[in-house]
Amino acid sequence: MQMRVRDLAALTAYVRLLGVSQRRLAGDAGVGHATVNHLLSGRRRHCSAETAAAIERALGCPSGLFFEPVDPVEARVLATRRVTR
């Protein structure tokens, strides 16, 4: 399942409030630094449910506070737009 950042400004403000670096958050969540960087910079708005849950756990906040499920139709569109390298 794909998840979307609910409110980028709220997420980045919360991370700043905690004083956690992107690298520390990535390490605590067990995800790549690039993933956290792209989500916090707005370059990316979507991630897997596992990544969203891991980030929220690492931040010590309730599940679903910063991420919400993507509509199934939107998820299909996202799947067809994946970039291959």
Score class of each variant (00 low, 15 high):
A79T: 01
V15Y: 00
R4D: 08
T12C: 07
P69N: 04
S21C: 10
H38R: 12
D7K: 13
V83P: 03
Q2M: 09
H46T: 15
A34L: 11
G30Q: 06
L8E: 02
H46M: 03
A52H: 08
V73W: 10
E50M: 11
A10P: 03
G60C: 08
R16H: 06
R44D: 02
Q22E: 06
G19L: 06
E68F: 03
D28Y: 01
H33T: 12
R45P: 08
R45F: 13
R82P: 01
A52Y: 11
V5T: 14
E74L: 06
A79R: 10
D71P: 03
T84D: 13
V36K: 00
M3T: 04
F66M: 07
V15G: 01
T80H: 02
S21E: 08
C61T: 15
V31C: 12
I55C: 05
L18N: 00
L40Q: 03
A29Y: 08
R6V: 14
A53E: 14
R24M: 07
R82G: 02
R44F: 01
V70T: 03
L25Y: 03
E56N: 08
R57I: 13
L25A: 03
A53D: 14
M1R: 11
A54N: 12
S41R: 14
R24N: 02
F67T: 08
R57S: 11
A75M: 01
R76D: 11
H38T: 07
L40Y: 03
A79C: 00
E68K: 10
R4C: 13
H33E: 09
A52E: 10
A52K: 07
V20R: 08
R24Q: 10
R24E: 15
G30N: 06
M3P: 10
M1Y: 08
V70M: 04
V36G: 01
S21W: 12
T12K: 13
T12L: 09
A53L: 14
R45V: 10
G60D: 13
R16F: 01
G60A: 02
T51E: 15
D71S: 09
E50W: 07
A34G: 05
G27C: 03
F66C: 11
A34Y: 01
R23T: 15
C61E: 06
L17M: 10
V73R: 15
M3N: 02
P62H: 10
A75D: 05
R82H: 06
A10E: 13
H33N: 11
G60F: 11
A29E: 12
D7H: 15
T80Y: 02
A13I: 04
A26T: 02
E68L: 10
V77C: 00
H38C: 06
A79N: 04
M1N: 05
L59K: 05
I55K: 04
D71K: 09
G42T: 05
R23G: 13
Q2E: 14
G64L: 09
S63C: 12
A53I: 02
L78D: 02
L40E: 04
V83Q: 10
P72N: 03
G32Y: 06
G30I: 06
R57N: 13
H38K: 11
L11S: 02
R45A: 14
R23I: 12
R76Y: 00
V5I: 15
A13R: 05
D71L: 04
F67H: 07
Q2T: 01
A75E: 11
T84W: 06
Q2D: 07
A13K: 09
G27A: 11
T35H: 02
F67Y: 14
V20T: 11
